[in-house]
Protein backbone atom coordinates (compact mmCIF):
# COMPACT_ATOMS: atom_id res chain seq x y z
CA UNK A 1 0.00 0.00 0.00
CA UNK A 2 2.73 2.45 1.05
CA UNK A 3 4.90 1.45 -1.92
CA UNK A 4 1.98 1.84 -4.36
CA UNK A 5 1.23 5.30 -2.97
CA UNK A 6 4.92 6.23 -3.09
CA UNK A 7 5.25 5.12 -6.73
CA UNK A 8 2.01 6.91 -7.62
CA UNK A 9 3.36 10.11 -6.04
CA UNK A 10 6.65 9.80 -7.95
CA UNK A 11 4.77 9.25 -11.23
CA UNK A 12 2.44 12.18 -10.65
CA UNK A 13 5.41 14.37 -9.67
CA UNK A 14 7.14 13.69 -12.99
CA UNK A 15 3.89 14.21 -14.93
CA UNK A 16 3.56 17.57 -13.19
CA UNK A 17 7.15 18.45 -14.10
CA UNK A 18 6.31 17.62 -17.71
CA UNK A 19 3.45 20.12 -17.49
CA UNK A 20 5.60 22.74 -15.77
CA UNK A 21 8.36 22.81 -18.35
CA UNK A 22 6.20 23.65 -21.34
CA UNK A 23 6.62 26.61 -23.65
CA UNK A 24 5.20 29.72 -21.94
CA UNK A 25 2.05 31.27 -23.45
CA UNK A 26 3.26 34.80 -22.96
CA UNK A 27 6.80 35.54 -21.77
CA UNK A 28 5.87 38.96 -20.43
CA UNK A 29 3.27 37.49 -18.06
CA UNK A 30 5.77 34.85 -16.91
CA UNK A 31 8.34 37.59 -16.34
CA UNK A 32 5.88 39.51 -14.14
CA UNK A 33 5.11 36.32 -12.18
CA UNK A 34 8.86 35.64 -11.87
CA UNK A 35 9.52 39.15 -10.48
CA UNK A 36 6.68 38.71 -7.97
CA UNK A 37 7.98 35.30 -6.86
CA UNK A 38 11.55 36.58 -6.67
CA UNK A 39 10.35 39.18 -4.19
CA UNK A 40 8.04 36.88 -2.21
CA UNK A 41 10.31 33.83 -2.01
CA UNK A 42 13.74 35.46 -2.20
CA UNK A 43 13.94 39.08 -1.12
CA UNK A 44 11.49 38.55 1.75
CA UNK A 45 13.76 35.80 3.12
CA UNK A 46 16.79 38.12 3.31
CA UNK A 47 16.19 39.29 6.89
CA UNK A 48 15.71 35.78 8.23
CA UNK A 49 18.82 34.46 6.46
CA UNK A 50 20.97 37.40 7.64
CA UNK A 51 20.00 37.14 11.31
CA UNK A 52 20.34 33.35 11.47
CA UNK A 53 23.68 33.36 9.63
CA UNK A 54 25.32 36.00 11.86
CA UNK A 55 24.30 34.31 15.09
CA UNK A 56 24.98 30.74 14.01
CA UNK A 57 28.39 31.84 12.67
CA UNK A 58 29.10 33.36 16.08
CA UNK A 59 27.98 30.24 17.92
CA UNK A 60 30.07 27.94 15.67
CA UNK A 61 33.17 30.05 16.43
CA UNK A 62 32.54 30.06 20.17
CA UNK A 63 31.84 26.32 20.35
CA UNK A 64 34.91 25.50 18.23
CA UNK A 65 37.05 27.78 20.39
CA UNK A 66 35.84 26.08 23.56
CA UNK A 67 36.56 22.63 22.11
CA UNK A 68 40.02 23.58 20.85
CA UNK A 69 41.23 25.11 24.14
CA UNK A 70 44.66 23.56 24.01
CA UNK A 71 48.01 25.40 23.93
CA UNK A 72 49.36 22.96 21.30
CA UNK A 73 46.58 23.71 18.77
CA UNK A 74 47.05 27.06 17.01
CA UNK A 75 44.15 29.49 17.41
CA UNK A 76 43.74 29.96 13.65
CA UNK A 77 42.28 26.43 13.53
CA UNK A 78 39.16 27.96 15.06
CA UNK A 79 38.74 30.14 11.95
CA UNK A 80 39.43 27.20 9.62
CA UNK A 81 36.82 25.07 11.38
CA UNK A 82 34.30 27.93 11.34
CA UNK A 83 34.90 28.55 7.63
CA UNK A 84 34.56 24.88 6.68
CA UNK A 85 31.45 24.32 8.83
CA UNK A 86 29.70 27.33 7.37
CA UNK A 87 30.66 26.81 3.70
CA UNK A 88 30.25 23.04 3.59
CA UNK A 89 27.18 22.48 5.69
CA UNK A 90 25.60 25.30 7.59
CA UNK A 91 24.88 27.75 4.77
CA UNK A 92 23.89 25.42 1.93
CA UNK A 93 22.08 22.76 3.97
CA UNK A 94 20.81 24.39 7.14
CA UNK A 95 19.71 27.60 5.44
CA UNK A 96 18.03 25.53 2.69
CA UNK A 97 16.20 23.57 5.39
CA UNK A 98 15.10 26.80 7.04
CA UNK A 99 14.01 28.16 3.64
CA UNK A 100 12.21 24.87 3.06
CA UNK A 101 10.02 25.67 6.05
CA UNK A 102 9.23 29.15 4.78
CA UNK A 103 9.14 28.73 0.99
CA UNK A 104 7.54 25.28 0.94
CA UNK A 105 4.70 26.33 3.23
CA UNK A 106 4.16 29.47 1.16
CA UNK A 107 4.11 27.60 -2.18
CA UNK A 108 2.01 24.65 -1.05
CA UNK A 109 -0.58 26.78 0.71
CA UNK A 110 -0.82 29.35 -2.10
CA UNK A 111 -1.25 26.71 -4.81
CA UNK A 112 -3.52 24.61 -2.58
CA UNK A 113 -5.79 27.57 -1.87
CA UNK A 114 -5.93 28.36 -5.58
CA UNK A 115 -6.86 24.74 -6.27
CA UNK A 116 -9.65 24.47 -3.71
CA UNK A 117 -11.10 27.86 -4.65
CA UNK A 118 -11.09 26.64 -8.32
CA UNK A 119 -8.78 29.47 -9.44
CA UNK A 120 -6.58 26.84 -11.10
CA UNK A 121 -9.63 25.45 -12.93
CA UNK A 122 -10.42 29.01 -14.01
CA UNK A 123 -6.92 29.31 -15.52
CA UNK A 124 -7.31 25.94 -17.29
CA UNK A 125 -10.71 26.87 -18.73
CA UNK A 126 -9.21 30.12 -20.05
CA UNK A 127 -6.61 28.04 -21.87
CA UNK A 128 -3.68 28.97 -19.62
CA UNK A 129 -1.07 26.23 -18.98
CA UNK A 130 -1.73 26.56 -15.26
CA UNK A 131 1.08 24.32 -13.98
CA UNK A 132 3.62 26.08 -16.12
CA UNK A 133 2.38 29.61 -15.38
CA UNK A 134 2.10 29.09 -11.62
CA UNK A 135 5.12 26.89 -10.92
CA UNK A 136 7.83 27.66 -13.47
CA UNK A 137 8.38 31.27 -12.25
CA UNK A 138 8.68 30.00 -8.65
CA UNK A 139 11.34 27.47 -9.67
CA UNK A 140 13.25 30.10 -11.65
CA UNK A 141 13.06 32.59 -8.76
CA UNK A 142 14.45 30.09 -6.23
CA UNK A 143 17.12 28.71 -8.58
CA UNK A 144 18.41 32.23 -9.17
CA UNK A 145 17.97 33.80 -5.75
CA UNK A 146 18.80 30.95 -3.37
CA UNK A 147 22.50 30.89 -4.41
CA UNK A 148 22.60 34.64 -3.69
CA UNK A 149 21.08 34.00 -0.25
CA UNK A 150 23.53 31.20 0.46
CA UNK A 151 26.62 33.20 -0.57
CA UNK A 152 25.36 36.05 1.61
CA UNK A 153 24.81 33.56 4.42
CA UNK A 154 28.40 32.26 4.10
CA UNK A 155 29.76 35.80 4.27
CA UNK A 156 27.61 36.83 7.23
CA UNK A 157 28.27 33.56 9.08
CA UNK A 158 32.00 34.16 8.89
CA UNK A 159 31.57 37.83 9.85
CA UNK A 160 29.50 36.69 12.85
CA UNK A 161 32.26 34.29 13.83
CA UNK A 162 34.90 36.97 13.43
CA UNK A 163 33.13 39.39 15.75
CA UNK A 164 32.21 36.73 18.30
CA UNK A 165 35.83 35.58 18.46
CA UNK A 166 37.21 39.13 18.72
CA UNK A 167 34.68 40.41 21.27
CA UNK A 168 35.14 37.43 23.61
CA UNK A 169 38.89 37.42 23.10
CA UNK A 170 38.88 33.73 22.18
CA UNK A 171 40.72 34.47 18.93
CA UNK A 172 42.34 37.67 17.72
CA UNK A 173 41.35 39.38 14.45
CA UNK A 174 44.72 38.59 12.87
CA UNK A 175 44.56 34.91 13.80
CA UNK A 176 40.99 34.65 12.52
CA UNK A 177 41.84 36.23 9.15
CA UNK A 178 44.99 34.08 8.86
CA UNK A 179 42.88 31.00 9.55
CA UNK A 180 40.30 31.99 6.93
CA UNK A 181 43.00 32.23 4.26
CA UNK A 182 44.79 29.03 5.21
CA UNK A 183 44.32 25.89 3.11
CA UNK A 184 41.34 27.49 1.32
CA UNK A 185 39.73 25.30 -1.38
CA UNK A 186 37.54 27.16 -3.90
CA UNK A 187 36.01 23.78 -4.87
CA UNK A 188 34.06 23.87 -1.59
CA UNK A 189 32.19 26.96 -2.79
CA UNK A 190 31.35 25.14 -6.02
CA UNK A 191 30.15 22.14 -3.98
CA UNK A 192 28.01 24.38 -1.78
CA UNK A 193 26.44 26.13 -4.77
CA UNK A 194 25.66 22.84 -6.53
CA UNK A 195 23.88 21.72 -3.36
CA UNK A 196 22.03 25.02 -3.13
CA UNK A 197 20.71 24.81 -6.70
CA UNK A 198 19.60 21.17 -6.26
CA UNK A 199 17.96 22.02 -2.93
CA UNK A 200 16.19 25.04 -4.45
CA UNK A 201 14.75 22.78 -7.16
CA UNK A 202 13.61 20.23 -4.57
CA UNK A 203 12.05 22.88 -2.33
CA UNK A 204 10.00 24.49 -5.09
CA UNK A 205 8.92 21.41 -7.02
CA UNK A 206 8.00 19.23 -4.03
CA UNK A 207 5.98 22.07 -2.50
CA UNK A 208 4.31 22.75 -5.86
CA UNK A 209 3.42 19.07 -6.19
CA UNK A 210 1.68 19.00 -2.81
CA UNK A 211 -0.09 22.32 -3.39
CA UNK A 212 -1.16 21.74 -6.99
CA UNK A 213 -2.85 18.40 -6.37
CA UNK A 214 -4.76 19.26 -3.18
CA UNK A 215 -8.29 17.88 -3.01
CA UNK A 216 -10.80 19.10 -0.45
CA UNK A 217 -10.84 22.30 1.53
CA UNK A 218 -8.92 24.40 4.02
CA UNK A 219 -8.05 21.43 6.27
CA UNK A 220 -6.53 19.50 3.34
CA UNK A 221 -4.55 22.58 2.27
CA UNK A 222 -3.05 22.74 5.76
CA UNK A 223 -2.36 18.99 5.84
CA UNK A 224 -0.73 19.02 2.42
CA UNK A 225 1.39 22.05 3.31
CA UNK A 226 2.70 20.19 6.35
CA UNK A 227 3.35 17.06 4.24
CA UNK A 228 5.19 19.26 1.75
CA UNK A 229 7.51 20.62 4.47
CA UNK A 230 8.24 17.12 5.83
CA UNK A 231 8.74 15.52 2.40
CA UNK A 232 10.92 18.27 0.97
CA UNK A 233 13.09 18.25 4.13
CA UNK A 234 13.54 14.46 3.87
CA UNK A 235 14.33 14.58 0.14
CA UNK A 236 16.74 17.43 0.81
CA UNK A 237 18.63 15.47 3.48
CA UNK A 238 18.93 12.42 1.19
CA UNK A 239 20.04 14.62 -1.72
CA UNK A 240 22.61 16.22 0.59
CA UNK A 241 24.15 12.81 1.27
CA UNK A 242 24.16 11.82 -2.43
CA UNK A 243 25.74 15.09 -3.61
CA UNK A 244 28.38 14.92 -0.86
CA UNK A 245 29.19 11.33 -1.82
CA UNK A 246 29.46 12.28 -5.49
CA UNK A 247 31.45 15.51 -5.15
CA UNK A 248 33.59 15.09 -2.04
CA UNK A 249 34.39 11.43 -1.69
Amino acid sequence: MFITKFLEDIGRYFILMGEVFRRPDNLRMYWIAFARDLYTLGVKSLGLVCIISIFVGAVVTLQTALNLENPIIPKYYIAIATRESIILEFSPTMISLILAGKVVYNNASTLGTMRVSVQIDALEVMGVKSASYLIMPKIAACLIFNPVLIVLSMFLGIVGGYFAGSITGMISSTEFIDGLQMDYRPFYIYYALVKTVVFAFIITTVSAYYGYYVKGGAVEVGENSTKAVVSSSLVLIVANYIITQLLLS
Partner: peptide, 19 residues
Protein backbone atom coordinates in the same frame (compact mmCIF):
# COMPACT_ATOMS: atom_id res chain seq x y z
CA UNK B 1 -8.37 21.93 -26.72
CA UNK B 2 -6.38 24.87 -25.42
CA UNK B 3 -7.23 26.84 -28.55
CA UNK B 4 -10.91 25.93 -28.19
CA UNK B 5 -10.82 27.19 -24.63
CA UNK B 6 -9.92 30.65 -25.90
CA UNK B 7 -13.48 30.64 -27.32
CA UNK B 8 -15.01 29.65 -23.95
CA UNK B 9 -16.01 31.87 -21.08
CA UNK B 10 -16.76 30.41 -17.67
CA UNK B 11 -18.44 31.82 -14.60
CA UNK B 12 -17.69 29.56 -11.64
CA UNK B 13 -20.00 29.00 -8.69
CA UNK B 14 -17.69 30.81 -6.29
CA UNK B 15 -16.63 33.33 -8.97
CA UNK B 16 -13.02 32.01 -8.86
CA UNK B 17 -11.55 35.48 -9.15
CA UNK B 18 -7.80 35.67 -8.57
CA UNK B 19 -7.41 36.92 -4.98
Amino acid sequence: RRKLRLELGMVFQGSALFD
